[in-house]
Amino acid sequence: MTNSDRSSLTPKLAWLAFVDMLPLCLAVLPWGVLTGALAVQAGFSVAQSQALSLLVFAGAAQLSAITFFAAGTAYGAIFASTFVISARHLLYSLTFRQHIAQESWLTRVALAFLLTDEMFAVSEAHTKRSGAFSVRYALVSGLFFYIAWNVATAIGIALATLGQNADSLGLDSLGLEFAIVATFIAMTFGELRRFPVLVAIVISGSVAVFSKPFFSDSYIIFAAVSGMIAAYFCDRSDVSTGVEVKPEQVL
């Protein structure tokens, strides 16, 4: 898994990145619209509302900050919440680290800027499918998602400026977030036959569901690390060669 595909960007690769990211772009549209509209309603100017999506570019952190801002919460508390919510990106940058060590400073800066849940998801799926991490694929899919998120935010800002109330749009009842469920399952369940993967999925899924009411900011990273540790201890293959020691224990 340390292979890196450093070949140049072909139209075929760009198209693949686009198609793979498309369902996630559609799924995030209502949340982008909502984020834009709520920012305006919370008292951010039009430029500031768009700047949140252009610069912060983190849906959950933005929505949480907008709610705090509207309630007049101190900035220190908003910064702390932003750090906790976006801490899972540390896990993504650590996972990608082995692939991007040879890349230029500018490429690494751009890749970090475009690093989201969605870009990490499609890139990991592409790496598993093609056998090598492609930084071009990651950049194109990340950029496509960045554009979709900002267009959705702009639509939300326009609607709110025209006097539409975000709650009256009925966006959260559309069920577009099912595309997230479908895409993430499609990317992970193919490997369910491997026992440690089964353990990672069952443990992280249950921990997430049961800890969300108590740790609304941090349940994703908490659940993910629990699942990873459980899977690590269930992996019976030789750590240096990756060869299964007891194949009969694998589903």
Binding site: R88, I201, S204, A224
Partner: peptide, 12 residues
């Protein structure tokens, strides 16, 4: 195992 764990933690 990070991608399996984190993607499940988001959709579940």
């Amino acid at each position: 195992y990070s991608s399996y764990a984190v993607l499940t933690a988001i959709w579940a």
